[in-house]
Amino acid sequence: MEPVPQPEPPQDLPAAALSTGAVARRLGVSPTTLRSWERRYVIGPAHREDGRHRRWTPQDIARLELMCRLTAQGVPPAEAARAARDDTPATRAGARPGPVAGRPDSLPLGKVRPECRGLARAAVRLDAPSVEELLATALAEHGLVTAWEEVIVPTLHAVGRKWAAAGERYVEVEHLLSWHVSSALRRIRPAPAPPHPAVPPVLLACVPGEQHSLPIEALAAALGERGLPVRMFGADLPADALRDAVRRTGPRAVVLWSQSRTTADPALARSVAGVEWGLRGARLHSALLLAGPGWGAGAPDPRTARLFGLRSALQVIAVPAAGAAPETAAGRAGPAACGS
């Protein structure tokens, strides 16, 4: 009897083949952008799994990386795609795709999460839709604190270092990234505040002359997630307006952000720490917490304390939300009126 011929096994995909989502995170583009490039510019994966799922090989990814580099340099997408299809030495050699050390348009990131590299690449390309989508994904998957510390901050620092090293170049990258980070933080919905007992708010502001407000925007969003009321005054709040805001809101704590020593004002900190509010004969004052590298390591007044990082700031401010005030630098609890 003749043996029954067996069908040949299907050829396996390369072990390194990745899904569209994994490639998007790696390159810093949205999955929608990859599908759009495939449809418009015929720069898609060579293989599909059953059910039409795209699987990208190292050669496919090398073409995409070249297209990303060219668009970051200002080449129109159609021309970049044509060059990536027709002339990709890395693809012809079957080289494993990866960032090119010392490339002029690369950012000095060091050892960071893959999401951080993807966000940096999207920012350098000025790919606003991808920046927005990558930020939303990082916040949803990792939570605000981890996304801020391990994805957003390293990318912001890398852009800042690149700007400092390249003169006036990359200012547009920093502005685009900062705007989208701020927008993503403001989209985080605060948790409902408990109706009883009423908790006095936390006042957040940058010192006069300070324009860098993203760190306290992150703190405002994180406090809101925990149901704590916040009064955010943003960048460059004048000294008189700051003192008036403290008197009018009666906050349990005041957080002042200073990015550089040129804006940090110890005299202002002492003045705000001494602001009293409330009824005559029962004056109260708020705990003052100084945040940002501009303040240095110490505190200019015994009634003030230093904050270091978003996670530790939440431990100082949010843990005693039941009514106790944050502790001062001297280790004492703040005035009882700061929330009790």
Rank of each mutant, 00 (worst) to 15 (best):
P190N: 06
L256E: 04
A165V: 01
L288W: 01
V275H: 10
R189C: 03
A221E: 06
P201F: 06
G250A: 12
P215N: 03
A218T: 08
L176Q: 13
P200H: 07
A205E: 06
A291Q: 07
G250V: 02
V171Y: 12
T262K: 14
E172M: 13
V181E: 11
A221F: 01
V199I: 08
G160W: 06
R186S: 14
P238L: 08
R243D: 10
E225R: 05
V173P: 00
V199Y: 05
A241K: 09
C206R: 03
L242T: 10
R252G: 03
A269D: 04
V199R: 14
S286H: 09
V207E: 08
G224P: 01
R169C: 04
S178A: 11
L279C: 02
R270I: 00
F233P: 00
V207Q: 04
A198T: 14
R169E: 15
D240A: 15
R187A: 13
V255I: 05
P201K: 11
M232E: 07
P215F: 12
A205D: 09
R270W: 01
H285A: 07
V171G: 02
A269M: 10
L176C: 07
E225F: 00
A241T: 10
R283P: 05
A264N: 06
L176N: 12
S258H: 02
P293S: 03
A166M: 10
V255T: 02
R169D: 14
S182N: 08
L223C: 05
L176F: 08
A269E: 08
S183H: 11
S178D: 09
G234D: 04
A220R: 12
A191L: 09
W257E: 10
V199P: 02
L177D: 11
V159D: 00
A241L: 11
I188Y: 01
P215H: 09
K162R: 15
